[in-house]
Design a protein around this nucleic acid. Structure first.
Lengths: 345, 345
DNA sequence: CAGGCCCTTGACATCGATGTCGAAAGTGGT
DNA sequence: ACCACTTTCGACATCGATGTCAAGGGCCTG
């Protein structure tokens, strides 16, 4: 065969069997490394396999196999281009790779409809398991989309209306620490800039913000709270409005990495980066290189991914313990932006 | 059925047919929206589908279908956690989603063995097409791994030993502009910090560096050249050595985003960020927020991804034109770090 | 030398679906 | 009432593989 010319049709077991002069079943045995085949036939088959460039069709094989495994796992995250999702995805890939499993990935963009559509698409391909960072507020629909034998592991956000393993962080506690940190540096006017309030993690981060204020006897001012910031641009614009208040904030708590970046961009544009303190939820690349460097509550997406993959492979290996929620700790990383003293504009 | 209790086994066409009192073929027709089924039977089938939560098994169906399409495409990139790969992946996903196609993704980490292993794994699952940013220096092996009917589109790096569509940027020209920019700001001692020299894009960027020097009559000094920097840490360490030279560089050209970041980190640690000029290849998030903001040669991963996906779906739709290489332009983004004047240490 | 056991091997059914094709029923014209 | 034609529908083979099972051969034992 001309090596630059590709085969028109993949050879099948049958072709190999014909060339090697044995039955399909014997080829199947050799290809799967089963014992009980005479050495002479083994080498005849191996030779035929090489000669034809035979590659087993795993989808056909999983159809017939008793366990029906496809060695593929579906991963649905918020946005694969976001560094948090991307790192999580990569961590999942690394564990999956050790198990010889491939990943189907999809972004949900906070759309519950897209979530349902993709879940269906993946189960239609009979993925062995599902990793889900849900965009929906209720996942009870999974009961009739996903068969019992397919484990589901939630990441980043806990399930609602569906019983499954989950790997999350304590968002309320992380937010509480972030805001407490600002309070301890003397701030009393601390703004909250948050994600879509439909997202449970956003709710918990907001609750942590309120809790910290309450614990320090600082009155809650709804004027300092903005929800629903889906991207950096919107965060920048709403920060602009906050700074126009008669009694503007001296510090910001930005509850997600895109929001933090949007706020930083606006602060720099107005030359206020050394004036207004900021602590962000989620670490992000280069936070340490900005001036001031950015103080954050860091999640560890790699640890989240590894823990989720471990739960998943335990389930696939037959673990039938009750579902468990693993909480990965967050870390306050002090870098400078969160330690600026209050400054009256 | 208790909605919280999941089905033990997925219902099949046969189950639906039995419940609806029709043949499997009729169910197949209804499910696929084929004409020529009496309205009464259509609704009987639809009712049975709903009652059983039937979901077609697309792997089984693609096995039998004439075109054998699985509506899944394999994507192999350098590192899905790297922002360049992540954005490219996301752009591919968006186009694929419009076509109802799912993506299998994998990271290669510059390992040719991993590349071959993953290509085999994906073709074993009969992906309809392959998007590849190769780690290997020769992809002629694809001829016997990938059947003729499976289009391959290269991204970021052009193919070697294999004829396929490709979407790349002009790395040589981009590097030339970067270095020319530094030369025009008066620099004569410009260091090159590059990736593994086995990577063709790294070779082209180095060639662009040399070409710019030559065009400006600046002598080439091998002491100012470091290859093989696979990550940010190594970039930082080798920069440290460069700065210890008796005649150290006054400017840096860093040929990849991780290297740029490593170099910036070292410059900041030594307080030299306003002293030594730097231009990086690849834009990266927050480059505009650093001080000085970082001048870069930006690629547009979203444009690369969209162009690659367009080639791919054109091929899948039957386009049989000769293979084409699409070149996506790069942009010099002037932000400050590349405009610092030469400063003798 | 018969009987029993192990080792190899292949014929056949099957996984969940679709392609082919012919049978049955309905329609209209004469 | 008969024929040609269309519409509707299901029996069956098939996609590429694996599970089941029994047949055939060699070898050992009694």
């Amino acid at each position: 065969m001309n090596p630059l010319q590709r085969a028109a049709r993949r050879p099948t077991l049958k072709d190999v069997a014909a060339l090697a002069g044995v039955s399909m079943k014997t080829v199947s045995r050799v290809v799967n490394g089963e014992a009980g085949v005479a050495p002479a036939k083994v080498s005849a088959v191996e030779q035929a396999v090489r000669q034809l460039d035979y590659r087993p069709n795993v989808t056909a094989s999983s159809l017939r196999r008793l366990d029906g495994r496809t060695a593929a796992v579906a991963v649905l995250l918020e946005d694969l281009a976001n560094p948090f999702s991307a790192e999580l995805h990569r961590a999942l890939e690394d564990v999956a790779h050790e198990h010889g499993v491939l990943l189907f990935a999809g972004s949900l963009d906070e759309s519950p409809e897209r979530e349902k559509r993709l879940v269906r698409a993946f189960t239609a391909r009979r993925a062995d398991a599902l990793i889900l960072a849900p965009a929906s507020s209720d996942q009870s629909y999974l009961a009739y989309e996903v068969p019992e034998s397919t484990p589901v592991v939630f990441v980043d956000r806990a399930p609602t209306g569906f019983d499954a393993d989950a790997v999350v962080v304590d968002n309320m506690e992380g937010a509480r620490r972030a805001v407490t940190h600002l309070l301890e540096h003397g701030h009393r006017r601390i703004a909250f800039l948050g994600d879509l309030p439909s997202i449970t993690t956003a709710q918990h981060r907001f609750a942590g913000y309120q809790e910290a204020l309450r614990a320090h006897g600082v009155p809650f001012d709804p004027d300092l709270v903005v929800h629903g910031l889906a991207d950096a641009d919107r965060a920048a614009r709403s920060l602009e409005e906050l700074l126009r208040l008669t009694d503007p904030p001296t510090a910001l708590f930005t509850a997600q990495n895109d929001i933090t970046v949007g706020a930083l961009r606006h602060l720099q544009a107005r030359g206020l980066e050394h004036t207004i303190a900021i602590v962000g939820f989620d670490d992000f690349p280069l936070a340490d290189l900005l001036r001031p460097a950015v103080t954050v509550i860091a999640q560890d997406p790699t640890a989240i991914g590894r823990a989720a993959a471990e739960r998943l492979f335990a389930r696939l290996a037959g673990d039938s313990e009750p579902c468990r929620t693993v909480v990965i700790p967050t870390r306050l990383i002090v870098r400078g932006s969160g330690e600026l003293p209050p400054f009256r504009l």
